[in-house]
Every structure is written in C-alpha cells, then in structure tokens.
C-alpha cells in the first residue's frame, strides 16, 4: 500500500479552540485575583484563599466519584450524600475509640489516628457502596426517573439508619491536637487543618489523574465514559468496572465525610444532603462526567463561597448558584462537556 494513498494528515486544532480548551483552567486564578481586589487586604485574602481551596478540595473529593459514575453508566446517585454522612459518623466513632492517640502530644500518633479513621470510613462506605449499587441502583439502570427516586429513597433510609445507630443529636467531632490552631504567615493566620485538607485533596487529584491516564483500568474508565458498548465489544465487563468505580466513589465520599466533619467539627445525619447541594453545583459546573471539570468547579465554588462569606455573608450560597447559572449560560453542558459516542 502506497504512502501517498493515505497521506498522513493530522487535523490542526485552531488556536481559538486550543484557547477555549485552556480557558476554564484560567478561571481559578482569575477568580482569586478578583477576590484580592475586592477584599483589599492581602492577609485576609490569603486566609480566605486557603480556606476556599481547602473547601474546594473536600467538595472535589466528594464529587469526583459522583461525576465518574455518571460518565460511565449514566447513573446519577442522589443518595451519594449518605456516604458522606456515614463516613463522617464512622470516622467520629473511630476517633472516639482512639481518644488516647488524638489527645497525645505526638504528631505521629495524631495523624495515625486520623488515618485509621479515614481508612475505616472508606472501608465502610466502600462496602455500603457495593450494597447500594447491587440492591438499589442495579435494577434501574437506564431509567433516569426511577434512578432519581430510588437513590433518593436510599438516602432517606441511610439517614434514618444513622439516627438508629448514632442517635438523633448532632455530634461534636474534634480535631486531634496536631491539627488544631493556625500557622501565622506574615499577618495571615492559616488553620493547619486547611493546609492538610489542601494537601490530601491535591494528592488525590494528581493520583486520580495518574490512574486515569496511565493505568489500564483508568483507560477503561475513560473509554467506557465515551463508549461503553465498544468497551464491552472488546471483551471487558463494563458492569464490573462500573461496580469498582461506584465503590471507589462511595469510599471517596466517605473520606470526604471524615474530612468535612473534622473541618466543621460538628456532624449530623443530614450533613450529606446539605453538602450534596454544593456537590451537584460543582458537578454541573464541571460538566457531568468530567474529573478535570469537577476539580476546577470545586475550586471555583470553594473560593467564591469563602470570598462572598467574607464580603457579603448573606449571599454566600446564592453566589454559587449565580456562578452555576453564569457557567451554564456560557457553556450549557458545563466547563468540560464529556464526549459521548451516542
């Protein structure tokens, strides 16, 4: 076969399109800069920015599973918030058992206690995810209406079970010694815990990116999001892949729950459904199914919520809705619309 018959040709992406690709990424620094101008005081700005990033990272952790699950199987889990709440309560119980470790002056013991709490929470919510997927979600694949209803029902039951196990009162979840207090940088006071949250969130995002780009299972997930049927035709069981992703997403929601609990220091059975509002906003902003979009959306929401909470506390939640509306006016499918073959 001659080389000329099939002249190698690669379509050049126009500059404008390339720019449009990168544009959403730029929104985060732009928002931070606007925040600096609006707030005026660099020290307060730094405090708020770190707080915003920390909040964004936690929302990202909780939202990432939801968005990938949607991308892969077209399933949206309105009960995702239940995993957040259960994670927080399991974390609470484990930290209470390890009270000796959390009160110890040793930073190492403190962090080990948190790590054990996180692992326990992830294990429980991961298994809960398994049960949820098999019992609640599987019978209604492909039926959006029933999915919304049934997963909402799952949320109600899960919240009620939290009441049964942990009682109806809100619980106080205190941070271990090492994570209390703030670091003072110049005039800015930055809570240590927020730095930890940013660290964990960033590590997770990078890890997730690595898995999606460089491992076979990551490739399968990305391919499955685009065309699940073709992945099946190549001999892979998408259902099983989906179950793994669903469990991972649930475990991540559990992780997010522990982190959110330590951040707010109080936990209630309803915390999941409250956070879900932010999670949904982030997922919509990012584009349903897109991990990168979800990350950027989470950062934007976190920063904006903290800036407005400082500048005009009453409109904090409204501002995130306004952001969502603005993004959707610009890109009706979110920042990074996911390519679907069908």
């Amino acid at each position: 076969m001659s080389e000329t018959a099939i002249k190698p040709r690669i379509e050049k992406i126009p500059l404008k399109e390339q720019l449009a690709q990168k544009l959403p990424v730029l929104l985060v620094p732009v928002l931070a800069a606007v925040g600096l101008i609006a707030i005026g005081n660099p020290a307060s700005w730094l405090t708020l920015t770190v707080a915003g990033l920390a909040m964004g990272m936690m929302i990202f952790i909780m939202a990432s599973g939801l968005t990938v699950v949607f991308g892969l199987m077209d399933v949206i889990n309105f009960g995702h918030g239940a995993f957040v709440a259960v994670g927080a309560f399991v974390g609470f119980t484990v930290l209470a058992w390890l009270a000796g470790w959390t009160a110890s002056p040793s930073v190492f013991m403190n962090l080990t206690a948190v790590l054990v709490a996180i692992l326990a929470a992830m294990l429980v919510t991961g298994l809960l995810g398994l049960a949820f997927e098999r019992v609640i979600v599987m019978p209604v694949y492909g039926e959006h209406l029933k999915q919304i209803l049934v997963t909402m029902g799952g949320l109600i039951v899960a919240q009620q079970m939290i009441y049964v196990v942990w009682g109806p009162d809100e619980l106080h979840m205190s941070r271990p010694e090492a994570l209390q207090g703030s670091l003072v940088i110049g005039e800015a006071a930055i809570e240590k815990y927020r730095l930890v949250a940013v660290g964990i969130g960033l590590a997770l995002f990078l890890g997730m990116r690595h898995i999606l780009k460089n491992t076979k299972i990551g490739l399968l997930v990305r391919a499955g999001v685009e065309n699940g049927e073709m992945v099946e035709a190549l001999g892979y069981r998408v259902r099983r892949l989906f179950l793994i992703v669903f469990m991972t997403g649930s475990a991540l929601a559990g992780l997010g729950g522990v982190m959110w609990g330590l951040y707010q220091e109080t936990i209630t059975a309803h915390m999941g459904s409250e956070i879900m509002v932010l999670v949904f906003i982030v997922v919509i902003i990012g584009g349903l199914g897109s991990v990168e979009g979800c990350f950027i959306g989470a950062m934007l929401v976190g920063l904006l919520a903290n800036y407005t909470a400082f500048l005009a506390p009453k409109v904090a939640l409204i501002s995130t809705i306004a952001l969502m509306v603005a993004v959707l006016m610009w890109r009706p499918q979110g920042l990074y619309p996911v390519v679907k073959a069908k």
């Binding site: 949607f70 309105f78 959006h144 999915q147 919304i148 509002v277 919509i284 349903l288 809705i321 969502m324």
Partner: peptide, 11 residues
C-alpha cells in the same frame, strides 16, 4: 436532561 433539571432544582 431530566437528571440535569433535578440537580438544578435541588440547588
């Protein structure tokens, strides 16, 4: 999508 409407109305 219906799902989108559900999420937006919730928010």
């Amino acid at each position: 999508k219906a799902i989108f409407f559900a999420m937006v109305t919730l928010a």
